[in-house]
Design a protein around this nucleic acid. Structure first.
Lengths: 147, 147
DNA sequence: GGAATTTGTCAAGTAAGCTTACAATCATGT
DNA sequence: ACATGATTGTAAGCTTACTTGACAAATTCC
């Protein structure tokens, strides 16, 4: 599979959500999302004129995290403070997925997910090998790997 | 971060999309999605009565793939045939993410994403270490790792 | 207790979704 | 070329959802 197509399928930063769907995923009400937006906690794209709001993965993650800390008893203000560190981490997670999920190949008839170089100097590529529904890691010499 | 909260943020199978958002992501029209649903190619949840359709990650991936092959000149029927193998692979990819993204930790002050055992017998845990925006892999002895 | 936060609710208007139907386009086969 | 089926566009009529604004009800904070 070409990498650009593959990326299109796993890149969370390409996701778009409506307010209704985001509410269901995060377990909040539309009123809450709009208020949080008004306070500057969550951004919604394309709310120009009267068009419907569009949220991205970042907003979705924010909403889920804020709701999580609200449920733990924190006030909205404190919840927003607490999610800052998590947001930075989640952004890194997404970049890791973009960076390391290089593609899908087949090695010895088994599905192999190419995660890129484990050790670039030694030219070793790290694969996730899927066998009977279970997955395990495997190092493959770059000169052997078939792409 | 607790694993259940972490999973909530990266598990693609929790995603919900409206028809409008799915159209933008896949580059198709609502008419196309409804027709593909009528033909049994794509499933939409909660279309009972007159309520709005809800799509999941599987449907989103299907739509993107079908559109991709349509753009390559294939007919709808052929495009649907061609995506079968990709769909199976994508389902595996999602399960790998669910299975292997165990959590986020800190090792020596650096962000470390725990990917689970690289070699369970040797009790070696595979980490993605993030440093200065770049990420690399690292094996850590399980007895050392701080969780 | 009083003020500020946060959320619910209602109203009125706009936009979008739904189904059905018909038309237009494209592909396939004779 | 012609006929047939597949695929998509478009329109109508209706229902639902979204938006803003305002007021009220909780809730929290000082």
């Amino acid at each position: 599979m070409q990498k650009d197509l593959f990326l299109k399928l796993i890149d969370m930063d390409r996701l778009i959500f409506g307010i209704s769907e985001l509410c269901k995923m995060a377990g909040v009400t539309p009123r809450q999302l709009r208020y949080w937006e008004q306070k500057g906690y969550i951004k919604a794209r394309a709310s120009e004129g009267n068009k419907a709001r569009e949220y991205d993965a970042n907003a979705m993650i924010k909403a889920v995290l804020i709701k999580h800390f609200l449920d733990e008893g924190y006030t909205l203000n404190v919840a927003v403070q607490k999610i800052q560190r998590y947001m930075a981490n989640m952004k890194i997670i997404r970049s890791i997925i973009r960076e390391h999920f290089v593609g899908i190949e087949e090695i010895d008839g088994e599905l192999a997910v190419n995660l890129g170089y484990f050790d670039e100097a030694k030219r070793q590529i790290l694969y996730v090998i899927v066998k009977d529904g279970r997955s395990s890691f495997k190092l493959v010499d770059a000169s052997i790997g078939n792409n």
